[in-house]
Design a protein around this nucleic acid. Structure first.
Length: 487
RNA sequence: GAGCCGUUAGCUCAGGUGGUAGAGCAACUGCCUUUUAAGCAGUGGGUCGCAGGUUCAAGUCCUGCACGGCUCACCA
């Protein structure tokens, strides 16, 4: 569907071609970025600029025009910044100024050659000596003052969002920076970065519903991975004792401000470490990233003050539950389930599930400052090592910040016989109708039988970390193309 | 999956109790050589998300559907 505005511009393209001007040339080269000019000359005074006499060539998109008949001001925006340009008849001649007024629209990409000067109001400006259309635009940009506000349009046409909302672009630059910082932190701690399969024959490593797909040539059901965990631990068995992967993971579950069907996480594994070692490591990693990105460890997220100053709190789930639950509820399952029912919690008669959910509601979602929560029930931690002192507990923790789960980590279960039993228990859950269970992975058990050195591993939700560090209320604000229904 | 709210010009938004749709920006035609949400004068632009219904008459009231947002539930 083409609006009148688009038809007008298609007409201009036609006229340009008739004039022998290519509206889409491919050979234009700017000499500098707008930001370079601003950095170098912003503080240079007008007289000095006049004597400079250097011609600069910038290239970018015209984002505003103020037309004065025999002259005009316009702003050109490139990847780095925007700079004001000035065209006047006296400088470029009658024909060119008429051409400018007739053919240059807001939204067009142009290349501008000119000399720098300062306007009356002191703005650094390029006095155009020549210009060329580098890409003719056919559609009008969103409104210059209010920008693009419609949330649906912002997500579906993210390119327009990026053009008109600088703060949106900033979020994605920060996201990129965060991932770079994490990578360099891992690399500097001698971790090896790897890429493991995304197409899995068994969707393992987490309890989540997978996306199914099909390989035609092999006539084989495959799943998009719900976690890289089991492959990474195979690599630990293979002798890569410090390993990490940053990548996309897919879960076929609900969509919300905290959940997208595909999301990015880092998982890492380190031999000869315990889950307590990983608390120290994650504290260092996240405060390093926060310091680099936010510049400080105390900042606001939405309406709450977050204090990341070390050391972070560490609380034991059972110690905490003692304040909520009675002695009987903690020890007797039927009493516990009764209590969970009163909260309306779905627990499927799984003790750990009921306990964790009660903890989550009473304590977890109120943890604003970074807090390590440990002492997880064993029955909901089938890949984590059994605690040496209490066989109902796993050596596992989660990190909560701003009430959200940011990381999940544990000392890895490396006893193959125990692992097999845990998988069997998970399958029993499945047969009881529980939707969240881990699939049996014979090959993984087989792998453990060769021996995995004592190891601890963790996963960190990068999208949520980015939300936190960019003060974003929704995961969609930190994903370039969040999942939406087809139009 | 449930509840609440929203969808009007390319964009941002107005449109009491029903009476054939408005503004600003953008666009077009003029004027204007230091503006910056430039200014002045004029012009064009709409299947009011879609489909039904009530009514003499629906952007407005009712029903269904689509899409989006928020909250809740499940999850990270």
């Amino acid at each position: 569907m083409e609006s009148d505005l688009t038809l007008q511009r298609i007409g201009k393209v036609k006229q340009l071609i008739e004039l022998g001007i290519n509206p889409y040339p491919n050979d234009f080269k700017p000499s500098c970025l707008a930001s370079e000019l601003i950095e170098k000359y912003l503080d240079t005074d007008g007289d000095e600029l006049k004597s400079l006499q250097t011609e600069f060539v910038v290239a970018g998109r015209v984002i505003s025009i103020r037309d004065f008949g025999k002259s005009a001001f316009f702003h050109v925006k490139d990847s780095s910044a925007k700079i004001q340009c000035f065209v006047q008849k006296n400088e470029i001649g009658d024909e060119k100024i008429k051409f400018f007024k007739k053919f240059i629209d807001i939204g067009d990409f142009i290349g501008v050659t000119g000399k720098l000067f300062k306007t009356k109001t002191g703005e650094l400006t390029l006095n155009t000596t020549d210009f060329v259309i580098t890409t003719k635009s056919l559609r009008t940009l969103p409104e210059k003052w209010h920008g693009l506000k419609d949330v649906e349009l912002r997500y579906r046409q993210r390119y327009l969002d990026l053009i008109s909302n600088d703060d949106v672009k900033q979020i994605f630059l920060t996201r990129s920076k965060i991932i770079k910082l994490i990578r360099s932190f891992m690399d500097s701690h001698d971790y090896i970065e790897v890429e493991t399969p995304i197409l899995h024959p068994i969707a393992g490593g987490a309890a989540a519903k997978p996306f199914k797909t099909h390989h035609n040539a092999l006539d084989m059901e495959l799943y998009l991975r719900i976690a890289p965990e089991l492959y990474l631990k195979r690599l630990v068995v293979g002798g890569i004792e410090k390993v990490y992967e940053i990548g996309r993971t897919f879960r076929n579950e609900g969509i919300s401000t905290q959940h997208n069907p595909e999301f990015t996480m880092i998982e890492f594994y380190q031999s000869y470490s315990t889950y307590f070692d990983l608390m120290d490591f994650i504290e260092k990693l996240i405060t390093y990233v926060a310091n680099e990105v936010v510049g400080k460890l105390e900042f606001e997220y939405l309406d709450t003050e977050i204090d990341m100053t070390l050391p972070w709190d560490r609380i034991n789930i059972f110690e905490s539950l003692k304040q909520t639950l009675t002695e009987q509820e903690l020890n007797d399952e039927s009493a516990l389930f009764k209590r969970a029912d009163s909260y309306g919690i779905e627990h499927n008669n799984i003790r750990g599930k009921a306990l964790l959910e009660i903890f989550e509601r009473n304590t977890g979602e109120k943890l604003n400052n970074p807090t390590f929560v440990y002492g997880f029930p064993l029955d909901i931690s089938p890949l984590a090592r059994k605690n040496d002192n209490d066989p109902t507990i796993a050596d596992r923790f989660e990190l909560y910040i701003a009430g959200k789960e940011i990381a999940n980590a544990f000392s890895e279960l490396n006893d193959p016989q125990d692992q097999r039993e845990r998988f069997v228990k998970q399958i029993e859950l499945k047969s009881k109708g529980e939707e969240q269970y881990h699939e049996m992975d014979e090959d993984y058990v087989n792998c453990l039988e060769y021996g995995m050195p004592p190891t601890a591993g963790a996963g960190i939700g990068i999208d949520r970390l980015v939300m936190l560090l960019t003060n974003s209320p929704s995961i969609r604000e930190v994903l370039l193309f969040p999942h939406l229904r087809a139009e």
